[in-house]
């Protein structure tokens, strides 16, 4: 079996607060997993541990057999582990096209080039156009990102991450704040992702989760409560209790 992302005994403490508690988690190539759980369960922290924004307190993260626990965020992105931000984080003063151009150029390691035009490579420009086409961003191509509606910014956020051609894609609430009329763009984009890409989606929108995920992990208070297919999770009494009895519907 090809290995992909393998997490073992991963813990994270912020002072006395244990946010992730001995997590074991696998994400092989081609996986479509969802991570769900109530607010404060440690979902975003888990994403930040995997992408290297936080350093784990203990445990290991391996990617294709290599230990990446000590790698910084940049090195992990360059290995192909990319994530979208829960709160939209874009280059707000630049246009949509420039945002995507930056991502493609950095992926191609061209960020230190001084004496050529940033917009001078037709291949790069064609790739940007294809990405915008995929997420219906073309009409907004030359608009400055800070003036877009939030839902549109979420699409740019997704496009930025796809521009990195990742091998592991972590989507932190990709549909949060996206108007219902545009959610299908995000769902379609996720469904159109390459089959060998490993995808982990953190999401409250259960409709989206059940449409996209083939396996669901339920996280509660920093621990994995259960893992299973969408059908198993939907009929799991503990999960039903959590979602019907708890704060989230």
């Amino acid at each position: 079996m090809t290995e992909g992302l393998v997490v073992r005994g991963l813990s994270k403490r912020f002072g006395g607060l244990v946010v992730s508690d001995g997590l074991d988690f696998d994400l092989p190539p081609g996986a479509r997993k969802a991570l769900i759980g109530p607010n404060g369960a440690g979902k975003s922290t888990f994403a930040n541990l995997v992408t290297g924004i936080h350093a784990p307190s203990s445990g290991s993260i391996r990617f294709d057999g290599a230990d990446i626990s000590d790698m910084d965020e940049t090195a992990r992105v360059r290995l192909g582990i990319a994530k979208t931000f829960q709160i939209t984080t874009l280059f707000t003063g630049l246009t949509v096209r420039e945002n995507l151009r930056l991502a493609v150029l950095e992926r191609e390691r061209r960020g230190f080039r001084l004496f050529c035009r940033a917009d001078g490579d037709p291949e790069v420009e064609a790739e940007i156009a294809a990405l915008m086409d995929q997420l219906a961003l073309e009409p907004l191509a030359d608009r400055v990102v800070e003036r877009l509606a939030y839902g549109q910014q979420r699409l740019v956020e997704l496009a930025m991450t796809l521009a990195l051609k990742p091998r592991v894609l972590i989507l932190d609430e990709p549909a949060a704040g996206v108007p219902g009329s545009e959610t299908h763009l995000i769902t379609d984009a996720i469904e159109a992702l390459p089959a060998d890409l490993a995808v982990l989606i953190i999401e409250h929108d259960m409709e989206l989760v059940f449409r996209v995920a083939r396996s669901i992990v339920v996280l509660v208070a920093g621990r994995i409560l259960t893992e299973g297919t969408p059908a198993q999770i939907a009929s799991d009494p503990q999960v039903r209790e959590l979602y019907l009895g708890g704060a989230h519907g």
Binding site: E73, T74, A82, T89, L90, F91, L94, L105, R107, M160
Partner: peptide, 18 residues
């Protein structure tokens, strides 16, 4: 372009592997 990116959002720059 990457400098303008740095000014706008260092967090995003790191997230695109810069």
């Amino acid at each position: 372009l990457s400098l303008r990116g740095l000014q706008s959002s260092p967090a995003r720059m790191a997230a695109i592997g810069a």
